[in-house]
C-alpha cells in the first residue's frame, strides 16, 4: 500500500513537472531570443542558452520605437482604469448592498445581465460614440471603456453584504457620522482585501487590452505596449531578436506584479470565478 502510494506520488510529480516545463518553455524561449544575435537565430539545432547576455537588443528597441511612451501609456491607462473601477465598484456595490430604493433591484439586475456581454459585441457603437465626442485618437477615448466594470460592482456588493453588518453602519449613524464619512472611514477600510483583488484584476485587464487600442489609436505616440508590439511585429524591418526584447519588457511588469502578489492574484481570480 505504501509502496503503491509512493509510486503514485512519483508519477504525480513527474507528470506535473513535465507539464510545468512545457508551460514555461515559451517564456524561456522569449528571454533567450531576446539575448541572441540575428546570426545565432539561424543556428541549428536551436539552443536555449545565448552566447552572451548583452542588453543590446533591449537598447535597440528604444532606438526603433518610442518604447518608453508605450510603457507610459499602458501604465497610466491601467492605473487610471484600476483606480476608477475600484472606486466606482466600491461605491455602487455599497449602495446596492446596503440601501433599498425604488428601482434598485431592477437596476442591479440590468448591470448583472450586461456583465455577460463581451466587449467585442458592442465595440462598434462605442467607437461611433467616441467619434462623435471627438475622443478617437486621444488618451481619454482610450481609457474611457475601462472606467467601469459590471462584474466589479457585483463583486464588491457580495463582499460588503457578507462582511459589513448593518448594525455597524447604524451605530455610526447614531453617532452622527455623515453618509460619506461612513463610506470613506468604515466601508472602504473594511474592504481593503476585495478592493486590492479587484484592482489587480482591473489593472491586468487594462494592461492586456488589445482590440480597443487597435481601433481607436492611430497616433504612434498613444500606442500601448500591446499595440506597439503588435504593430512592431508586422513591420518587417525589425529583427526578431529586438522584437523578443520588446516582448520581454512588456511582460516584465506583469511578471513582477505576479511574483510579488502571486498568492493574492490567484486568490482574487479564484474569487472572481467562484461567484
Amino acid at each position: 500500500m505504501t509502496k503503491q502510494k509512493r509510486l503514485s506520488s512519483i508519477i504525480r510529480i513527474i507528470v506535473l513537472t513535465i507539464g510545468a516545463v512545457i508551460m514555461i518553455i515559451p517564456f524561456l524561449w522569449m528571454i533567450s531570443t531576446a539575448f541572441k544575435t540575428p546570426t545565432e537565430l539561424n543556428v541549428w539545432p536551436p539552443s536555449f542558452i545565448p552566447k552572451s547576455f548583452k542588453l543590446d537588443n533591449f537598447l535597440a528597441v528604444f532606438d526603433a520605437v518610442p518604447f518608453h511612451l508605450y510603457f507610459w501609456n499602458s501604465l497610466r491607462m491601467a492605473t487610471i482604469s484600476a483606480v476608477a473601477i475600484v472606486f466606482t465598484s466600491l461605491l455602487a456595490g455599497y449602495i446596492f448592498a446596503k440601501f433599498r430604493f425604488v428601482g434598485g433591484a431592477a437596476l442591479f439586475a440590468i448591470l448583472l445581465a450586461t456583465a455577460i456581454v463581451p466587449f467585442e459585441i458592442y465595440m462598434i457603437p462605442l467607437y461611433l460614440q467616441m467619434q462623435k465626442l471627438d475622443m478617437l485618437n486621444n488618451f481619454r477615448g482610450l481609457v474611457a471603456p475601462y472606467l467601469v466594470m459590471s462584474f466589479g460592482i457585483f463583486f464588491m456588493r457580495q463582499n460588503i453584504m457578507q462582511q459589513i453588518p448593518d448594525e455597524m453602519l447604524e451605530a455610526a449613524r447614531m453617532e452622527g457620522a455623515s453618509e460619506w464619512r461612513i463610506f470613506f472611514r468604515i466601508v472602504a477600510p473594511l474592504c481593503k482585501a476585495p478592493m486590492s483583488a479587484l484592482g489587480i484584476f482591473a489593472f491586468i485587464e487594462a494592461w492586456n487590452a488589445f482590440i480597443w487600442p487597435l481601433l481607436v489609436v492611430g497616433d504612434t505616440k498613444l500606442y500601448t505596449m500591446e499595440l506597439g508590439l503588435a504593430m512592431f511585429q508586422s513591420a518587417f524591418s525589425i529583427d526578431l531578436t529586438v522584437m523578443s526584447a520588446g516582448s520581454v519588457m512588456s511582460v516584465l511588469p506583469i511578471l513582477l506584479v505576479f511574483i510579488f502578489l502571486r498568492k493574492h492574484i490567484i486568490e482574487s481570480i479564484s474569487m472572481t470565478g467562484s461567484k
Binding site: 515559451p26 488589445f210 508590439l229 526578431l240 516582448s247 512588456s250 505576479f258
Partner: peptide, 23 residues
C-alpha cells in the same frame, strides 16, 4: 506549480503570441 501553470493566463497576449509565432 500553481503559479507556473497560471502564469500564461495573466501575461499579455501579444508578446506571447509573438514568441509562439517564432516557436
Amino acid at each position: 506549480y500553481e503559479a507556473i501553470y497560471f502564469l500564461p493566463y495573466i501575461t499579455p497576449m501579444v508578446p506571447v503570441a509573438v514568441t509562439w509565432k517564432w516557436i
